[in-house]
Amino acid sequence: MSQRGLLHHMIINVRDVARSSPFYTAMFRYLGYELGDSSYGADYGFEDWKRWDLDTPHEISICQVRDPLKRVPHQRGALGHHCHIAFCAESREDVDRFHREVLVPLAEKGLCTIEDAPCDCPEYNEGYYATFFTDPDGLKFEFVINPNHLIKKAARDSAAG
């Protein structure tokens, strides 16, 4: 399989890496990432999270924003900011388990906000099931199963072959 076009790495800027670390540690470990490298300086910090089980480099880093930009709040939808990042789940049960085992404990500690508990989202696709949540800085994430993608892929493959 060609790896062209797959995500190689991504950097997510956060206000304070030490403050955001518990959120990202819980989420990334659940998703199969390992902490590769980290630094927690007063002026700058980072964590590099990697998936070693894939046949392509795949890394997501959280990096601390430097002054004077630390005081600029995240504005969803603004130029240069992501609207949200969605991670694939294996099943509806996986979405439920992630919500129960990762998000609820983080929310109880004030380390994330759950925008939507696991729910059907027919406005996106039949069978689309997701939970939506934000990190300590308000960056939005989603954990989703979308079986419709596989149905459409199978139809596309059979039409082509």
Score class of each variant (00 low, 15 high):
residue 85 I to A: 11
residue 143 F to G: 02
residue 84 H to N: 08
residue 120 D to L: 14
residue 117 A to C: 05
residue 158 S to A: 15
residue 37 D to P: 00
residue 84 H to S: 05
residue 27 M to D: 03
residue 69 L to Y: 14
residue 22 P to Y: 07
residue 63 C to K: 07
residue 74 H to Q: 08
residue 117 A to D: 03
residue 112 C to P: 04
residue 2 S to Y: 07
residue 133 F to A: 03
residue 95 V to Q: 02
residue 116 D to A: 15
residue 119 C to F: 02
residue 84 H to M: 06
residue 97 R to Y: 00
residue 109 K to W: 04
residue 100 R to E: 06
residue 114 I to K: 02
residue 123 E to D: 08
residue 73 P to A: 15
residue 6 L to W: 09
residue 16 D to Y: 03
residue 145 I to Y: 03
residue 19 R to F: 02
residue 53 D to L: 10
residue 134 T to V: 11
residue 128 Y to T: 03
residue 131 T to N: 04
residue 131 T to G: 06
residue 1 M to K: 10
residue 4 R to W: 09
residue 86 A to R: 04
residue 102 V to E: 00
residue 156 R to A: 14
residue 51 R to Y: 09
residue 157 D to T: 12
residue 49 W to G: 05
residue 158 S to V: 11
residue 148 N to T: 10
residue 118 P to F: 00
residue 127 G to H: 05
residue 41 G to A: 06
residue 62 I to L: 04
residue 88 C to L: 10
residue 132 F to M: 13
residue 18 A to G: 07
residue 161 G to D: 10
residue 155 A to H: 08
residue 62 I to T: 05
residue 118 P to G: 03
residue 45 G to D: 05
residue 41 G to K: 01
residue 8 H to F: 12
residue 69 L to M: 13
residue 143 F to S: 02
residue 131 T to R: 01
residue 62 I to Q: 01
residue 32 G to H: 13
residue 71 R to S: 15
residue 35 L to F: 07
residue 124 Y to G: 01
residue 86 A to Q: 05
residue 14 V to H: 03
residue 116 D to F: 12
residue 79 L to A: 14
residue 20 S to V: 04
residue 137 D to F: 02
residue 68 P to I: 09
residue 27 M to R: 03
residue 115 E to P: 03
residue 122 P to Q: 11
residue 143 F to A: 01
residue 26 A to W: 07
residue 65 V to A: 09
residue 3 Q to I: 14
residue 148 N to Q: 14
residue 7 L to Y: 07
residue 150 L to E: 13
residue 125 N to P: 00
residue 139 L to Q: 13
residue 50 K to T: 14
residue 40 Y to H: 14
residue 89 A to E: 01
residue 35 L to D: 06
residue 62 I to V: 11
residue 69 L to D: 12
residue 10 M to Q: 13
residue 96 D to K: 01
residue 145 I to W: 02
residue 107 A to W: 00
residue 47 E to K: 09
residue 76 R to L: 11
residue 102 V to W: 01
residue 32 G to F: 12
residue 6 L to K: 12
residue 129 Y to F: 08
residue 31 L to T: 07
residue 85 I to G: 04
residue 149 H to T: 13
residue 32 G to V: 13
residue 59 E to W: 08
residue 138 G to W: 08
residue 34 E to Y: 05
residue 61 S to W: 06
residue 39 S to I: 05
residue 131 T to D: 02
residue 42 A to E: 15
residue 122 P to L: 13
residue 126 E to S: 12
